[in-house]
Structures are given as structure tokens and as C-alpha cells.
């Protein structure tokens, strides 16, 4: 049953990775603006015309 130690350790590690991902997302400002990106993603990428 000592495998439990390993399993719990691994599951905690996975959970910590998700926690870190969440904290990184907050830190990089992804929760600051929940509206504009939803509009921005619908814009067409036009090639910049040669001038």
C-alpha cells in the first residue's frame, strides 16, 4: 500500500501544475479584460497592402 504515498504525491504535483498555470494566467493579465479578446478574435487577418 506504500504506493499510495507515490500516487498522492503525483496527484498533488499535477494539481500544483494547474494551480501554477492559473496563477500565471492571472499574473499575465488574462483576467483583466474578459470582453475585448472575444471581439478581437473575430477580426480578419488582412495582409498589409504594399504601399
Amino acid at each position: 500500500m506504500t504506493i499510495i504515498f507515490l500516487l498522492i504525491g503525483l496527484s498533488l504535483l499535477v494539481a500544483l501544475v494547474f494551480l501554477a498555470a492559473f496563477l500565471w494566467a492571472v499574473r499575465s493579465g488574462q483576467y483583466d479584460d474578459a470582453y475585448t479578446p472575444s471581439v478581437r478574435m473575430l477580426f480578419e487577418d488582412e495582409p498589409i497592402p504594399p504601399t
Binding site: I8, L12, A15, F18, L19, F22, L23, V26, Y31, D32
Partner: peptide, 24 residues
């Protein structure tokens, strides 16, 4: 003014701990 992130950090940490402690 920049939005404060503290509440998000606190919330994330509490959710993480809640889920794991509940399992244990």
C-alpha cells in the same frame, strides 16, 4: 488603475486546497 489580482490568487489557492483536502 490596474485591476488587483489578489482576490484571484486567494481564490485559486483556496480552491486548490479545498479540493485536495476534501479528497484526503
Amino acid at each position: 488603475h490596474r485591476a488587483s489580482h489578489t482576490l484571484y490568487y486567494q481564490l485559486g489557492l483556496a480552491a486548490f486546497a479545498f479540493g485536495n483536502v476534501m479528497l484526503l
